[in-house]
Amino acid sequence: MEPAEYDDEHDDPDEARSAEGDDGGAEEEETRRPRSVYGVGTEPDVRFSLANERTALAWLRTGLTLVAGGVALTTLASFGEGNEVLDIIAGMACLAGGVLALAAISGWRRRERALRLGEPLPAPRILPVLVAAVALFALAMAGYAVYQVVT
């Protein structure tokens, strides 16, 4: 798990910081939140922690994309009459975006805890849900298109 070019002399961040004269390290450790994450385990390699943060940010942006898509669909629906389906889809997209944002922060917590405890990284819980939602959405849209053609 240790990446290439890693400096073995500094694999314990606390030790390294105290060696560099950082007296506020222990105090800072106490004030770090959330305690459910930083109150357990030991400090992991900071690169993994930063990668975890970037993953959470990427999920947040995915949620934001869904929200923006939903708002764009609302605008599209307002151009004409009888676009209730578009409004419903827009509402669902906005809702899903919000849920995805919450899942992003929950996933960050779980991964950070696992990193600190030296446990295997947990499987992403939201990914299967997202895949199922996209598949259901595709089926629903196909059904709607067939319905429009038939009627």
């Binding site: 940010l57 947040l60 949620g63 934001l64 869904l66 929200v67 939903g70 708002v71 669909l73 609302t74 629906a77 307002s78 209730e84 409004d87 419903i88 827009a90 509402g91 997209a93 906005c94 809702l95 899903a96 975006g97 919000g98 849920v99 944002a101 919450l102 992003a104 922060i105």
Partner: peptide, 20 residues
């Protein structure tokens, strides 16, 4: 930032509902 995205999602939902 997470809170901001959730609030945005809520606003988008409100817009969609108001439109509907």
């Amino acid at each position: 930032t997470c809170g901001a995205v959730v609030v945005l999602g809520g606003m988008g939902l409100m817009l969609a509902m108001a439109n509907l």
